[in-house]
Amino acid sequence: MMDALDPTQEPTLAELLERYAMLRDTMLGLEAEKEALGVQIKAALQTGEQAETDLYRASLKISRRVEYPVERFREVFGDAAALEVATIDRKKAEALAQAGDLDKDVLRSLSVVKETQALVLQPKTR
Protein backbone atom coordinates (compact mmCIF):
# COMPACT_ATOMS: atom_id res chain seq x y z
CA MET A 1 0.00 0.00 0.00
CA MET A 2 1.18 3.57 -0.60
CA ASP A 3 2.92 5.15 2.36
CA ALA A 4 0.98 8.34 3.10
CA LEU A 5 3.65 9.42 5.59
CA ASP A 6 6.50 9.55 3.06
CA PRO A 7 5.49 11.92 0.24
CA THR A 8 9.05 11.90 -1.16
CA GLN A 9 8.85 8.25 -2.21
CA GLU A 10 7.04 7.43 -5.46
CA PRO A 11 4.58 4.55 -5.18
CA THR A 12 5.35 1.42 -7.15
CA LEU A 13 3.16 0.33 -10.04
CA ALA A 14 1.83 -2.52 -7.89
CA GLU A 15 0.90 -0.02 -5.16
CA LEU A 16 -0.85 2.21 -7.70
CA LEU A 17 -2.77 -0.81 -9.02
CA GLU A 18 -3.73 -1.87 -5.50
CA ARG A 19 -5.09 1.60 -4.73
CA TYR A 20 -6.89 1.77 -8.09
CA ALA A 21 -8.51 -1.63 -7.49
CA MET A 22 -9.59 -0.62 -3.98
CA LEU A 23 -11.16 2.61 -5.24
CA ARG A 24 -12.87 0.84 -8.17
CA ASP A 25 -14.31 -1.86 -5.89
CA THR A 26 -15.53 0.76 -3.41
CA MET A 27 -17.16 2.80 -6.16
CA LEU A 28 -18.85 -0.26 -7.70
CA GLY A 29 -20.31 -1.19 -4.33
CA LEU A 30 -21.51 2.33 -3.70
CA GLU A 31 -23.00 2.60 -7.20
CA ALA A 32 -24.90 -0.69 -6.75
CA GLU A 33 -26.26 0.48 -3.39
CA LYS A 34 -27.22 3.87 -4.87
CA GLU A 35 -29.08 2.18 -7.74
CA ALA A 36 -30.97 -0.13 -5.36
CA LEU A 37 -31.95 2.78 -3.13
CA GLY A 38 -33.03 4.77 -6.18
CA VAL A 39 -35.36 1.98 -7.30
CA GLN A 40 -36.99 1.86 -3.85
CA ILE A 41 -37.35 5.63 -3.62
CA LYS A 42 -38.80 5.95 -7.15
CA ALA A 43 -41.33 3.21 -6.43
CA ALA A 44 -42.46 4.99 -3.26
CA LEU A 45 -42.71 8.37 -5.02
CA GLN A 46 -44.78 6.82 -7.82
CA THR A 47 -47.36 5.73 -5.23
CA GLY A 48 -47.65 9.31 -3.99
CA GLU A 49 -45.34 9.16 -1.00
CA GLN A 50 -43.04 12.07 -0.26
CA ALA A 51 -39.46 11.89 0.96
CA GLU A 52 -37.16 14.58 2.24
CA THR A 53 -34.28 15.16 4.62
CA ASP A 54 -32.93 18.34 6.14
CA LEU A 55 -31.02 18.98 2.92
CA TYR A 56 -32.94 17.25 0.14
CA ARG A 57 -36.42 16.63 -1.20
CA ALA A 58 -36.98 13.73 -3.54
CA SER A 59 -38.98 14.18 -6.70
CA LEU A 60 -39.37 12.39 -9.99
CA LYS A 61 -38.13 14.10 -13.13
CA ILE A 62 -39.62 12.94 -16.38
CA SER A 63 -37.26 12.86 -19.34
CA ARG A 64 -38.47 12.74 -22.90
CA ARG A 65 -36.52 11.64 -25.93
CA VAL A 66 -37.83 12.54 -29.34
CA GLU A 67 -37.78 9.74 -31.89
CA TYR A 68 -38.98 9.58 -35.47
CA PRO A 69 -40.57 6.35 -36.71
CA VAL A 70 -38.38 5.15 -39.59
CA GLU A 71 -41.19 4.10 -41.94
CA ARG A 72 -43.16 7.31 -41.48
CA PHE A 73 -39.98 9.44 -41.82
CA ARG A 74 -39.14 7.60 -45.05
CA GLU A 75 -42.68 8.08 -46.41
CA VAL A 76 -42.60 11.81 -45.73
CA PHE A 77 -38.98 12.71 -46.56
CA GLY A 78 -37.91 9.89 -48.90
CA ASP A 79 -35.33 7.14 -48.98
CA ALA A 80 -32.31 9.42 -49.39
CA ALA A 81 -33.16 11.50 -46.29
CA ALA A 82 -33.95 8.37 -44.28
CA LEU A 83 -30.62 6.83 -45.25
CA GLU A 84 -28.79 10.07 -44.48
CA VAL A 85 -30.00 10.17 -40.86
CA ALA A 86 -30.14 6.42 -40.19
CA THR A 87 -27.85 4.60 -37.80
CA ILE A 88 -27.36 0.86 -37.62
CA ASP A 89 -27.99 -0.79 -34.26
CA ARG A 90 -25.26 -3.42 -33.92
CA LYS A 91 -27.25 -5.66 -31.58
CA LYS A 92 -30.32 -5.63 -33.81
CA ALA A 93 -28.22 -6.34 -36.92
CA GLU A 94 -26.53 -9.27 -35.18
CA ALA A 95 -29.91 -10.57 -34.00
CA LEU A 96 -31.16 -10.49 -37.60
CA ALA A 97 -28.08 -12.42 -38.71
CA GLN A 98 -28.58 -14.93 -35.91
CA ALA A 99 -32.19 -15.41 -37.00
CA GLY A 100 -31.05 -15.99 -40.58
CA ASP A 101 -32.53 -12.78 -42.01
CA LEU A 102 -29.05 -11.42 -42.80
CA ASP A 103 -25.99 -13.30 -44.03
CA LYS A 104 -23.61 -13.54 -41.04
CA ASP A 105 -20.46 -13.56 -43.17
CA VAL A 106 -21.51 -10.54 -45.21
CA LEU A 107 -22.49 -8.67 -42.04
CA ARG A 108 -19.11 -9.52 -40.50
CA SER A 109 -17.30 -8.27 -43.61
CA LEU A 110 -19.12 -4.92 -43.31
CA SER A 111 -18.06 -4.40 -39.72
CA VAL A 112 -15.54 -1.75 -38.70
CA VAL A 113 -13.74 -2.20 -35.40
CA LYS A 114 -12.71 0.90 -33.47
CA GLU A 115 -10.26 0.36 -30.63
CA THR A 116 -10.12 2.19 -27.34
CA GLN A 117 -8.00 1.40 -24.32
CA ALA A 118 -9.50 0.76 -20.91
CA LEU A 119 -7.90 -0.45 -17.72
CA VAL A 120 -9.53 -3.74 -16.74
CA LEU A 121 -8.90 -5.55 -13.49
CA GLN A 122 -9.21 -9.28 -13.63
CA PRO A 123 -9.70 -11.17 -10.38
CA LYS A 124 -6.97 -13.69 -9.65
CA THR A 125 -9.32 -16.19 -8.01
CA ARG A 126 -12.52 -17.57 -9.46
Rank of each mutant, 00 (worst) to 15 (best):
M1E: 01
M1S: 02
M2G: 01
D3E: 13
L5E: 14
D6F: 09
Q9T: 10
E10R: 12
A14P: 00
E15N: 09
E15S: 06
E18D: 07
E18G: 06
Y20V: 12
L23R: 12
M27I: 01
L28V: 01
G29E: 15
G29Y: 10
E33T: 14
K34E: 14
E35R: 15
A36M: 13
V39H: 02
K42W: 09
Q46C: 01
G48M: 08
E49A: 06
T53Y: 10
L55G: 04
L55S: 07
R57E: 09
R57A: 15
A58I: 05
K61Y: 04
S63H: 01
V66E: 14
Y68M: 01
P69S: 04
R72E: 07
R72F: 12
F73A: 05
R74L: 12
R74T: 14
R74C: 15
F77Q: 09
D79T: 14
A80I: 07
A82T: 15
V85W: 13
I88E: 00
K92N: 03
A99H: 07
G100L: 12
G100T: 08
G100F: 06
D105R: 11
D105Q: 09
L107M: 09
V113H: 15
V113G: 06
K114G: 13
Q117D: 11
Q117V: 11
V120A: 04
Q122K: 14
P123C: 00
T125D: 03
R126N: 06
